[in-house]
Structures are given as structure tokens and as C-alpha cells.
């Protein structure tokens, strides 16, 4: 446990010092947005064992809502983020309510189909900019005074948001609700036989996950200053699954590591190998799934656990 505390401490120092270390803050912000997205996804997959193939819908819809409100209606960034998050939450409620009636792959297929629907709405709707998306999204001033135009200021805002979401997810998992969610994940019939209406708990988990995914999307819209169809696209849904599995589902920090690996590979390899980066990430993914199924953080945790005293029998 002490090792974990030290690791978190070093990480916090690093995160706070990023602007001084000469690391490109936009890259770090992108990484944090992806990490937040992956953490949100992990809440659903890792702790609720629900496999969604359509999480880009929530990420992208929130990004569009936020981007549109600040661009076309001159909303402040704070209110626009809240609106984006609400849109994602409501969308999550609708998609979740339909999807939880089925399980496993059927659940996944419903999320996929509904996410495609959201994609087409974003393609065809008059206010989303069609193929071009929304360009020139202004960052504005948070709460009317904090100038987000500065990459450094925005970086700290995104960092604070990420830390808040990370701690929030920990709380959800370690809450009375989290206990029930884990019970349902472990054994649905048993949870039913103890009087739980499991679909309501699954739906709440789905809405929470969609809401947080939306938060990540809204932030991303401000960070990059544009929203495009790729934010609601199937490939983005695939990417978040990849990041989560790569880092380790059901661990708290796994999705962050997964996001860091994927974002770094994309950033640095795409300069070297161009379009091949997708193929390389695919190979890394397959190698991971074949050689360490628990993901990077999952395997590390398992290795440490084994070194400790064996469990009582």
C-alpha cells in the first residue's frame, strides 16, 4: 500500500509540474480527457460488467452540445460544460433504459445501434456543421474571470476536473451503491434472489458512466477548439474499450495507464509511421490480451498480491 501512495505522490508532482517540464500542455490535456473517458467507461465495464460499444455517443454528444453553445450562443465555458454533461446523462438514460433489457453481446449491440443513430444525427443536424464539425470553438473565461485561452490555466482546470472525476469514481465504487453494483456484476440471479431490482442499479451505473464520459467530451471540445464527427464515431468507442482493457478493467488506475499508452503511441508514432499507428495499436492490443489479460495495472496488482502472504484457506 505504501508503494501505491508513493506512486500517487510522484504522479501528482509530475502532473502539477507538467507546464514547467516543457511538456506540450495540449497533449497532456488530451491525455487527461481520454483518461477521464476511460475511467468513466471502466465504471460501467469493470464494476458493472456491462460492455458498451457506443460510448462515443455520450462523449461526442456532450462535445457537440458544449461546442455549439459556446460558439453559436456565446455561453460561458462553465455553463456549456454543465449543459454538455446533462445532455450526455439524458442520452445515457435513454440508451441505458433500452440496453439493460438485454445482456452480454445483445446489450452491446443495442448500444452500438443507438450510438450509430446519434452519429447520424450529428452528421445531419443543422447545427453540428456536418462533415466539417464545429470549428473555432472559443474557450472563454471560466466563471467569468479565469481565462482558459492560456494553455497553462486550462491545463490546471482539466487536471482538477480529472482528479475530481477519479476520486468521484472511487467513491461510487466504495459506496453502498457500489457494493450492490459489484454484487450484481458477480452474480445477477443471486442479487435478484436477495430482493434487488437489478435493472435500476444497472441503469444508474450506465447513466453515471455516460455523464462522466460526457464531461470528458465537453472538456475535449474546449481543449482543441473544435468538435468533429470523429468524436461520436465508432472508432472512438473502440478506442475507449481498448484503453480500458489495456490498462486493466476493474482497477482504478488501469484506464489512466491505458489512455496514456494509447495517446502517446498516437502522438509520437503517427509522426513516424503515419496511418500505420492504428495497426500498431491493434497489434499492441492483441499482444496484451493474449499475454496479460488483466491489463497492465491488473497484472502489476496481481503480481504484488502474490508476493504477499497466501490467502487463508
Amino acid at each position: 500500500m505504501r508503494l501505491t501512495a508513493v506512486a500517487y505522490g510522484l504522479l501528482a508532482l509530475f502532473a502539477l509540474g507538467v507546464p514547467l517540464l516543457g511538456i506540450y500542455p495540449v497533449f497532456m490535456m488530451q491525455l487527461l480527457c481520454l483518461a477521464m473517458f476511460a475511467c468513466a467507461y471502466n465504471l460501467l465495464l469493470g464494476f458493472g460488467r456491462m460492455l458498451s460499444f457506443g460510448h462515443a455517443a455520450f462523449f461526442g454528444a456532450a462535445a457537440y452540445a458544449t461546442g455549439w453553445l459556446v460558439t453559436a450562443h456565446a455561453w460561458g465555458p462553465g455553463a456549456a460544460i454543465v449543459a454538455g454533461v446533462v445532455v450526455a446523462g439524458l442520452l445515457g438514460l435513454a440508451v441505458g433504459a433500452l440496453a439493460i433489457r438485454r445482456q452480454g453481446i445483445y446489450f452491446a449491440m443495442i448500444t452500438l445501434a443507438l450510438a450509430q443513430l446519434v452519429y447520424f444525427v450529428c452528421l445531419e443536424a443543422p447545427f453540428t456543421g456536418g462533415e466539417n464539425g464545429l470549428q473555432g470553438v472559443p474557450r472563454g473565461k471560466l466563471l467569468g474571470f479565469l481565462p482558459l485561452k492560456s494553455d497553462v490555466v486550462l491545463y490546471y482546470v482539466v487536471l482538477a476536473a480529472f482528479v475530481a472525476v477519479f476520486l468521484f469514481i472511487r467513491r461510487v465504487v466504495h459506496s453502498p451503491f457500489g457494493q450492490v453494483l459489484k454484487a450484481i456484476r458477480d452474480n445477477e440471479p443471486r442479487a435478484i434472489s436477495l430482493g434487488y431490482e437489478i435493472n435500476r442499479y444497472k441503469l444508474l451505473a450506465f447513466v453515471l458512466s455516460a455523464t462522466l464520459a460526457g464531461f470528458a467530451g465537453s472538456l475535449k471540445a474546449l481543449v482543441f477548439g473544435f468538435v468533429t464527427l470523429s468524436d461520436v464515431q465508432q472508432s472512438t468507442s473502440g478506442e475507449v474499450i481498448l484503453m480500458t482493457l489495456l490498462g486493466g478493467t476493474g482497477t482504478f488506475f488501469g484506464p489512466v495507464v491505458g489512455a496514456a499508452v494509447v495517446a502517446t503511441l498516437q502522438q509520437y508514432l503517427s509522426d513516424l509511421v503515419g496511418g500505420w499507428v492504428i495497426a500498431i495499436i491493434g497489434v499492441v492490443f492483441v499482444a496484451c490480451v493474449l499475454s496479460f489479460r488483466r491489463g497492465i495495472v491488473g497484472e502489476l496488482a496481481a503480481a504484488r498480491w502474490l508476493r504477499r502472504a497466501p490467502p487463508p484457506r
Partner: peptide
């Protein structure tokens, strides 16, 4: 059983509904 919960937590799941906080995701366990 719920394999990834402790024995105590397993039993507590059955007791938990009585508290009326099973949806409280903001509260600590």
C-alpha cells in the same frame, strides 16, 4: 455467492436494503 466480495460483504448485501441507501453512490460504504 458474490465471489469478489468478502464473506462479510456477502452477508451485508442481504442486510443492506433495510438501510434504504442502496442507490446512494455519493456516500461512503
Amino acid at each position: 455467492v458474490f465471489p469478489h466480495l468478502t464473506a462479510l460483504e456477502n452477508v451485508r448485501i442481504a442486510l443492506q436494503r433495510a438501510l434504504g441507501t442502496t442507490f446512494h453512490f455519493w456516500r461512503h460504504q
